[in-house]
Design a protein around this nucleic acid. Structure first.
Lengths: 382, 382
DNA sequence: GTTCGCACCGAAACCGGTTTCGGCAAGGGG
DNA sequence: CCCCTTGCCGAAACCGGTTTCGGTGCGAAC
């Protein structure tokens, strides 16, 4: 109805008008200079006198002026935000990981005046859809890709779209990829050596998610250590897909049921190791004596079981910080080949590993005895 | 050097140019209509014929056009993002909470075509600074405020700035506030009644963080239940500040050292309850018999201790979803008074509570005996 | 046969920044 | 004294959208 729009018109239904934020025009008018001068002064262009720059800086400070990220983005093409899309299908896998990781990401990002926009998806397809939407709407200048696969559709998508990204992990085809990763293979190697030093001869591997890059690397580290130490490398010592307690327990039961079961298990993930812990208990084995376990991740639950889990702690906060820093450099145009970093996870020795109390053969007999006894009494899981 | 700017100029140093995203101008030109027509057609204005609307929709779809959120924001004043600033000072307090909560927030938000920008801060001061920066840079249209205080500086700040917000929790002065909260007081009431039904007479309270709104409400629920049931309400039965295992254990030790110790404890937080669990064990008490415990939060660690912790599970995912929905309605202009929701936490009965095996007096004697014995042998904590 | 209203759409202003271009004044060299 | 830099800044274009305003064509009413 009102044809003459009132200046600074209060739009009805709008929540509490509040003090309108200062714009660059306000600052320019207050100083009697042009918008361009204010912009150049604040962005450090060389063709502004020091005196003017000072005046502009002070006025901006005094008026509480900060440039609108959107308005800036529309011209520069950069939003000042990094993106992260989380896959929350499996609740078990990344729980403790998150808070520290986010803290690392955001603090490092805000040091460069960047914010973090995050989204979630249930599955792979939705992840891709969310990524394309975020790119199209220009909600982020680049992305962090956690939980990389050996062959990862997200990477293909971002590569094709020409959007910067950094992997948390490695991948099959590294061309054009920047990454930060923890040397899981080095940890597995260290774990095998430690168990060997304890006196173990048959050391098994409880692997993680198939197709995920970390699992291939950790498996490789495990196998290479076996080879170096001259230990038997037997397919019957390996199982995969142990990413939760259930799958970890099942995998461990499989390994223990073999003719020559391992007396120690190197586990790719702590959740799998906790499953192994439970399976051992159910088989009447004493963890740390009858069966040694070494995990990887440093999940807090590991400290809760008895005996507590020997594991490799990863500093998720530091990882997040590095990733953010790398991504921002990538967005600024540095080539991906120069942006590849790795770090080592730190061994955290606790009670779940030690010298073997039983030989493999003796262990096999114990297991056989226990399980046959259980078969009569035990029904389905409650 | 090049004075004639090339169309679609490739900016050097820019990472992989990629296919330039389609803009509204591209769509308009492809159809031979004006930008305004495209905009109106896509945004559902009534003065566009159905035929034109269809043509525009299809062309946009075909060209993969999505309006840039920034460009849109500059005119409409709305970025299409909700903000969340997390305080990550104390790592213990909100760990498991996070992943589900974020999943709820983002899925509900993206249903309304909104994204989530998050930031972190170490302490209160930094939280305020981060908030003001996000507001000034217009990185979010409104904010979710978790872990509300009775008197909360963030609320004052947002109220003054006229920025929409929704509390996760309640607060002292509710004017202008919208919120979603779980009825902690109802849970505490239920816990007290349950313990009373078990036969407990002296029921204690292990409270959470001072100044936090939830603690006041839960304490109130506890006290009111005591009064209703005619149970003794004794200051010696209450302690506060038990938000971690350490503080929970210390508080429990204090309560147990009294002349008439409680035979059951209602705990405002699970982490505090887990500390009580440890303290009970260290005092030689059997949890669930000598000392009953009921927690609140449903942290996964509760299922790991023996006996497992009876607690109230909260659905953080649903909470996030409701909060996002409420905030978006708030941003769209609905009055805060209409945007207040609560839900109930669900009791999850496990093994840590039951009929009292000892009277309060007998418990006091047991505790006294154990601690005096311990005083000789026990040094500092390892 | 005008006139009016209505449905539909184009032109252009606008949002808040950045960036290009050009102009003015001061200073230095010939 | 003139010309050419150089330093500094204003004017205006531009980014990709939204929104206002006005105009056209058409059918109905007078």
């Amino acid at each position: 109805m009102l044809t003459d729009a009132p200046p600074n018109g209060v739009r009805s239904g709008q929540p509490a008008a509040g003090a309108r934020r200062a714009t660059i025009t306000d600052v320019a008018e207050a100083l009697g200079v042009s918008k361009g001068t204010v912009s150049r002064a604040l962005n450090g262009y060389p063709d502004i006198s020091d005196r003017t720059r000072q005046r502009v800086r002070q006025a901006a400070e005094r008026m509480g002026y900060l440039p609108s990220a959107q308005a800036k983005a529309i011209r520069t093409g950069r939003v000042g935000a990094i993106g992260l899309v989380l896959q929350v299908g499996e609740p078990d896998e990344q729980r403790p990981f998150l808070a520290d990781f986010l803290a690392g990401l955001t603090t490092a990002a805000s040091a460069e005046n960047c914010s973090l926009t995050i989204a979630t998806a249930q599955d792979d397809g939705e992840t891709r859809a969310v990524l394309t939407r975020l790119i199209a709407e220009r909600k982020a200048d680049g992305f962090i890709l956690p939980r990389t696969r050996l062959s990862d559709p997200r990477i293909d998508l971002l590569r094709a779209a020409g959007v910067p990204f950094v992997l948390f992990g490695r991948t099959g085809d590294p061309t054009g990829c920047a990454w930060f990763d923890l040397l899981g293979e080095a940890a597995m190697d260290e774990a095998v050596r430690r168990l060997h030093a304890h006196g173990h001869q048959r050391i098994g591997y409880l692997g993680g998610g198939a197709g995920l890059a970390y699992n291939a690397l950790r498996l490789e580290g495990y196998r290479r250590a076996l080879a170096t130490l001259g230990l038997p490398c037997d397919p019957a010592l390996e199982t995969h897909g142990a990413t939760t307690m259930e799958t970890g327990a099942a995998g461990t039961a499989r390994l223990l049921a073999g003719a020559e079961p391992p007396t120690a298990l190197v586990c790719a993930t702590d959740m799998g190791a906790l499953g192994a812990h439970r399976a051992a208990r159910e088989a009447g084995l004493m963890v740390g004596r009858d069966l040694s376990l070494i995990g990887y991740d440093g999940v807090p639950e590991g400290a809760w079981v008895a005996p507590p889990l020997t594991t490799f702690e990863v500093d998720n906060r530091a990882a997040g910080a590095r990733l953010a820093a790398l991504l921002i450099r990538r967005i600024r145009g540095e080539p991906p080949e120069a942006l590849r970093e790795t770090a080592r996870a730190r061994l955290c020795p606790r009670g779940s590993d030690g010298p073997p109390a039983l030989s493999s053969a003796a262990l096999a007999r114990r297991v056989a005895a226990t399980t046959s006894r259980h078969h009569d009494t035990k029904g389905g899981r409650p």
